[in-house]
Each structure stands twice: as structure tokens, then as C-alpha cells.
């Protein structure tokens, strides 16, 4: 614009004009940042305008997803470190809880998560095996990620947030641990009852 060839000084915008434009740019930037960008990106909403526009929830979801991805990553790293012996021990505990079986379901698991607590429930399944599931959450809403990993592979079957029930079936895409990562983002304790049936080996749970 004015920097291509050396313009004569009187062709340039006046100093006051430039200053006013810069101030307008800065003030409007701050206004847009505080009311739109920060609520939508980080859930930071000092004016409460972002909340009215529904942007703050968007930012909170982004924060939550980032946290959960980080948790999941850490948990997977921790699981890889754990010996299979430890998994066997967890398997025994779960095996003992199998007593309360229903007619149609092979396994029923009940666990309670305090606010912000998480759990991981996995079925050992071989490639192509099918398992049915049904679960309900009581006391609040829960976030879940139904996924699998094993042999260096991983897959995401389903995920949801603020859910209170779910049912369906999964077909194992490879040999490995298939199941749920649960996290209670609600403000009260949530009790999840999970029922399972199908072609799977041991059920492994880690809290």
C-alpha cells in the first residue's frame, strides 16, 4: 500500500488518523477476544456474554476433551507398563464378582465413581469376536469412550458425554483389550451398572 514505493509525506495518512485506527483495531480485538474467542477456545468467560451465546460450553468441551485425551494417553501408557500378572489379579477380583448373574447376561459389573474419578473396564477379545453390552448410570451423567487397543493397534468404537445409558454390541477388530474408559464429570457420585455377554475372555478393570 504505502510501503511499495517511497511516497511523499503528505500522501501518508496523518499520525492522528493512524493512531486512531490502531486504537480502534486494538479495542475491537480485545472486545472480540473477551466475548467470543476466549469463551469458545478456553471456556474463559469474564463478561458472561460467551455463556449467553453458547460459546463457553464449546470451550469447556474443548478443555474436557483435551484433558480426557491426555488421561487416556497416560492410562494407556500405564497399562502397557503393567505386567499381565497384575491384569490377571484384577481379573480374579472381577471373576469373584460374577456371582450375581442374570439369565441372559454373562457378567454384571457395578462401580461407583466420585466426581472427576475415572475407571477402565476391558474385555479380552480375539479378532472377530462379538460381545453385547448394556449399561445404565444412576446418580448423574457420565462420559465414556468405548475403544480397544492391543498388539500396537487401537480403534474407537463409540464415545459420548453426559450419557445415562447405552447398549449395543462390538465386534473386535483385532486381538486385544476392548472396553470402556469412564469418567464422571458430574457433581455427584455416579453408579454405573454394566452387563455383558458374548465371546470374550476375562474382564479386566482398573480404577
Amino acid at each position: 500500500m504505502f510501503n511499495a514505493e517511497k511516497p511523499s509525506l503528505e500522501d501518508l495518512p496523518s499520525s492522528a488518523h493512524l493512531l486512531r485506527s490502531t486504537v480502534i483495531a486494538g479495542v475491537s480485538a480485545v472486545a472480540i477476544l473477551v466475548t467470543v474467542v476466549l469463551p469458545a477456545e478456553y471456556g474463559v468467560d469474564p463478561t458472561r456474554i460467551g455463556g449467553v451465546l453458547g460459546l463457553t460450553e464449546m470451550g469447556e468441551i474443548k478443555n474436557q476433551l483435551a484433558e480426557e485425551a491426555e488421561m487416556d494417553r497416560q492410562m494407556e501408557a500405564a497399562n502397557d507398563d503393567q505386567s499381565s500378572l497384575l491384569n490377571d489379579i484384577f481379573g480374579l477380583f472381577v471373576g469373584a464378582a460374577h456371582a450375581q448373574e442374570q439369565e441372559v447376561w454373562q457378567d454384571m459389573l457395578t462401580f461407583t465413581l466420585a466426581p472427576d474419578a475415572s475407571a477402565e473396564i476391558k474385555m479380552e477379545m480375539t479378532d472377530g469376536a462379538i460381545a453385547d453390552y448394556a449399561w445404565v448410570a444412576e446418580g448423574g451423567r457420565i462420559n465414556f469412550d468405548l475403544h480397544a487397543h492391543g498388539g500396537g493397534q487401537s480403534i474407537d468404537y463409540d464415545r459420548g458425554r453426559g450419557a445415562t445409558s447405552g447398549e449395543g454390541s462390538i465386534e473386535a477388530a483385532f486381538d486385544g483389550d476392548h472396553g470402556w474408559f469412564w469418567r464422571n464429570r458430574d457433581s455427584a457420585d455416579v453408579t454405573v451398572t454394566l452387563q455383558l455377554r458374548g465371546a470374550y475372555g476375562e474382564v479386566v478393570e482398573t480404577y
Binding site: M1, P13, S21, T22, I24, A25, G26, S28, A29, V30, I32, L33, V37, L38, E41, Y42, V44, A66
Partner: peptide, 27 residues
């Protein structure tokens, strides 16, 4: 038009700066 466009661009630059500086402290 170019004058206005550059003022808008400057504002967007300020927004990007504020967005990232806040991210540095928040995230």
C-alpha cells in the same frame, strides 16, 4: 478499502496474539 482492510487485519493480529498469550497461561 485497503486502509480499512489493513485496520481489520491489524485487529485480527491482535486477536491472534491475545488468543495465544491467554493459551500460554491457561493451558
Amino acid at each position: 478499502q485497503a486502509y480499512t482492510a489493513n485496520v481489520v487485519m491489524m485487529s485480527m493480529g491482535f486477536i491472534l496474539m491475545g488468543y495465544q498469550i491467554t493459551g500460554y497461561f491457561v493451558a
